[in-house]
C-alpha cells in the first residue's frame, strides 16, 4: 500500500459518497445517468466475486463491501426511491455498444481463461468506459450541477492516482498488470476533457455548462 493507492481508494470512496449524499439531501437524482450507475454496479459485482473465494485483508474486504453496498444503494435511489426525479429522457446512451465489445474483449485478452478471471477482466474493461453514459448525458443537456462535477472529479482522479500507484509498484515491487494499466489509461483519458472544464470553470466558481 503506497500513498497513491490509498488516496486513490479514498478518492473513489469520496466520489461514491458524494453522489449518494447529493441524491439523499436534494431528494433528487436529476442529472445522474442511471445507466452509468448500473454499469458501476455490474463492475463491482463481477470484480469482487473473490470476496467469496479469498481473503486479502480487512481493509480490502471492507472497501469491497462498501463499494458494492453503495453501488446498489445508488441504484435503489435512482430507480426506486427517487425514480420520479430520474431524467431518463436524457439518459439515452446505448449501453449494449459498451457491453458487447467489452464482453468479447474480456474473453480474448485476459490473464487466464477461467470464469473468475474473465469476470475480473470484464469488470476492468467495463469500468474504463462505464462513465460514458454520464458524460453523454451531460453533453446532451449541456450542463451539470456543481455537486455532480465534484463526483466526476473524484471518480476520475481515483484512476489517475492508480496510474501513479502502478508506476510506484513497478519500480519498487516489480509488479505490473498490463490489463489494469491499459484500461486505467483509457479510463483516465476519457476524463481529460472533463478535468479541463472542472479546473477552468467549476474551481473558479462557475457552473459547468457547455457551449451550445
Amino acid at each position: 500500500m503506497n500513498v497513491f493507492r490509498l488516496t486513490g481508494d479514498l478518492s473513489h470512496l469520496a466520489a461514491i459518497i458524494i453522489l449518494l449524499l447529493k441524491i439523499w439531501k436534494t431528494r433528487s437524482c436529476a442529472g445522474i445517468s442511471g445507466k452509468s450507475q448500473i454499469l458501476f454496479a455490474v463492475v463491482f459485482t463481477s470484480r469482487y466475486l473473490d470476496l467469496l473465494t479469498s481473503f486479502i485483508s480487512l481493509y480490502n474486504t471492507s472497501m469491497k463491501v462498501i463499494y458494492i453496498g453503495c453501488a446498489y444503494a445508488t441504484l435503489y435511489f435512482v430507480y426506486m426511491k427517487f425514480k420520479a426525479t430520474y431524467d431518463g429522457n436524457h439518459d439515452t446512451f446505448r449501453v449494449e455498444f459498451l457491453l458487447v465489445p467489452v464482453g468479447g474483449l474480456s474473453f480474448l485478452v485476459n490473464h487466464d481463461f477461467s470464469p473468475l478471471e474473465i469476470l475480473w477482466t470484464f469488470s476492468i474493461y467495463l469500468e474504463s468506459v462505464a462513465i460514458l453514459p454520464q458524460l453523454f448525458m451531460i453533453s446532451k443537456t449541456g450542463e451539470a450541477e456543481t455537486i455532480t462535477t465534484h463526483y466526476l472529479f473524484f471518480l476520475g482522479l481515483y484512476r489517475a492516482l492508480y496510474l501513479f500507484n502502478w508506476i510506484w509498484r513497478f519500480y519498487f515491487e516489480g509488479f505490473f498488470d498490463m490489463i489494469a494499466i491499459v484500461a486505467g489509461l483509457v479510463q483516465t483519458i476519457l476524463y481529460c476533457d472533463f478535468f479541463y472544464l472542472y479546473i477552468t470553470k467549476v474551481l473558479k466558481g462557475k457552473k459547468l455548462s457547455l457551449p451550445a
Partner: peptide, 10 residues
Amino acid sequence: DIQINPKDEL
C-alpha cells in the same frame, strides 16, 4: 522477477 496480477487492488 516480475509478479503478475494478484488481486489485492480494488
